[in-house]
Simulated scan of single mutants.
Amino acid sequence: MTNQIAIVMGIILTAAIAIDVALFGSEHMVFLGKKLFELIDWVAFWR
């Protein structure tokens, strides 16, 4: 992955998160953060 592609993907991801928070609030991000932490913990267990 080149630096240019990584920067564009980062900008798109940041914009998507900002739009989600602006339209629906930050509760979704807390829920997704908790689920992501559980997923990382589960994957680390199976590693």
Rank of each mutant, 00 (worst) to 15 (best):
M1R: 13
M1E: 02
M1N: 08
M1V: 08
T2M: 01
N3H: 07
N3D: 06
Q4K: 12
Q4Y: 07
Q4F: 02
I5E: 11
I5Q: 05
I5S: 03
I5M: 06
I5V: 13
I5P: 01
A6D: 12
A6K: 15
A6T: 07
I7Y: 14
V8C: 14
G10F: 09
G10Q: 01
G10I: 14
I11C: 14
I11Q: 08
I12A: 08
I12W: 04
I12H: 00
L13D: 11
L13T: 14
L13P: 04
T14W: 00
A16R: 05
A16G: 12
A16W: 09
A16D: 10
I17V: 15
I17M: 10
A18E: 02
A18T: 05
A18F: 02
A18M: 02
A18R: 00
I19T: 03
I19M: 00
D20V: 03
D20F: 05
D20N: 10
V21C: 03
A22N: 02
A22E: 01
L23Y: 03
F24L: 13
F24Y: 15
F24R: 15
F24W: 15
G25R: 02
G25H: 07
S26P: 07
S26Y: 08
E27T: 06
E27C: 00
E27S: 05
E27F: 05
E27N: 02
H28S: 08
H28N: 11
H28P: 00
H28Q: 08
H28V: 06
H28A: 07
H28Y: 08
M29W: 05
M29I: 12
M29L: 10
M29H: 09
V30N: 14
F31H: 14
F31G: 13
F31L: 15
L32Y: 15
L32F: 15
L32S: 14
L32A: 14
G33S: 14
G33N: 15
K34R: 12
K34N: 07
K34M: 11
K34C: 11
K35D: 08
K35R: 14
L36W: 10
L36R: 12
L36P: 11
F37I: 11
F37W: 11
L39V: 13
L39G: 07
L39I: 13
L39Q: 12
L39F: 14
L39S: 13
I40W: 10
I40P: 00
D41A: 12
D41V: 00
D41C: 09
D41T: 10
W42N: 01
V43D: 01
V43K: 04
V43N: 02
V43S: 05
V43Q: 03
A44I: 04
A44H: 10
A44Y: 07
A44T: 08
F45I: 03
F45D: 06
F45L: 03
W46C: 02
W46E: 04
R47N: 05
R47W: 03
R47E: 00
